[in-house]
Amino acid sequence: MASSAPPRPPDAAPPHKARPPYEPDPVLARRMLLTMFLVLLVYAATALPFFLLGAVWGLAAVAAAVVLAAAVCRYTDRLALWAAEGREVTADREPELHAIVERLCVSADLPKPRVAVSDLAAPNAFAAGSGPGAAVVCVTRGLRERLTPEELAGVLGHEMAHIANRDVLVASVAAFPSMCAELFLRFWLGLARRLATLPIAVLLAPVALAVLPLHLVGLVTSLALSRYRELCADTTGTLLTGRPGALAAALAKIHTGMADAAPADRRALRPVNALCVARAAPDRRRPPELLCSHPSLERRTARLTLVSQRLADGG
């Protein structure tokens, strides 16, 4: 991110746009492509056994997966809102939230998403919906109580970046194979527990054995992808608002706030955890990085500092 231009004498005229204002971050893009390639491999590994049964079976499995994925994407916003007890609000009820979101739409050139609030006391925010045309952003009551207006704008900028990047779609696609694998494993465990269905479970044991590594690999890759997307949304969001310092301050407050939040609130946010601005669990029980949906606060703050330096150098 640091400017690579040689230092120029202070009295020289400013250079005329020596670099494009926003070059992509090549390292992050490369890692993301690698992760997406792994996701593709997981998909291929899922479809392969069906193709071994026969081409028709394989195509049928692919079609079923596409239909399911489409349904997940279509209803993800309603599901997320329902899970987090969010309700949509009009501009008359929440003029402040609507004004911030509208300005962010102007900056990002996006259609305006629906705005929702949740009565949870845990400070968090999430965006849901399959794309810019059908999106919703939701903030909790706890978030509004703790953050200054400027920090609130920073968090909403992060959420608008998720919408612009179609992160919900990307995350659902990446998590889909491992979700299906998990469903099958649960079904299999249910069979194995009952004596009457034990023979079927024994028959299906090889399938379960094959699905287990698929589930683990799928989970790890989708979590890795989620961490990259969070870092990207931090950068994109603060390049929209121009105030990375505000988002860094907000993230620090949210992290302490989530650690103090009531367990019931955290449970309510868990289904939408991957969509939240910060992890819906306290940091002292943080699993190793590999199993986290969000990067650590230190990593995010370090990246936001880079954006700050760049803005101080000139957009």
């Binding site: 926003y22 893009a29 990002a108 050139d109 990047n165 179609r166 929209l240």
Partner: peptide, 15 residues
């Protein structure tokens, strides 16, 4: 912001 920019998560604000 194009579709590819979005899928790659690139910080590409409008021109």
């Amino acid at each position: 912001m194009g579709l590819l920019d979005g899928v790659l998560g690139r910080p590409a604000p409008r021109r």
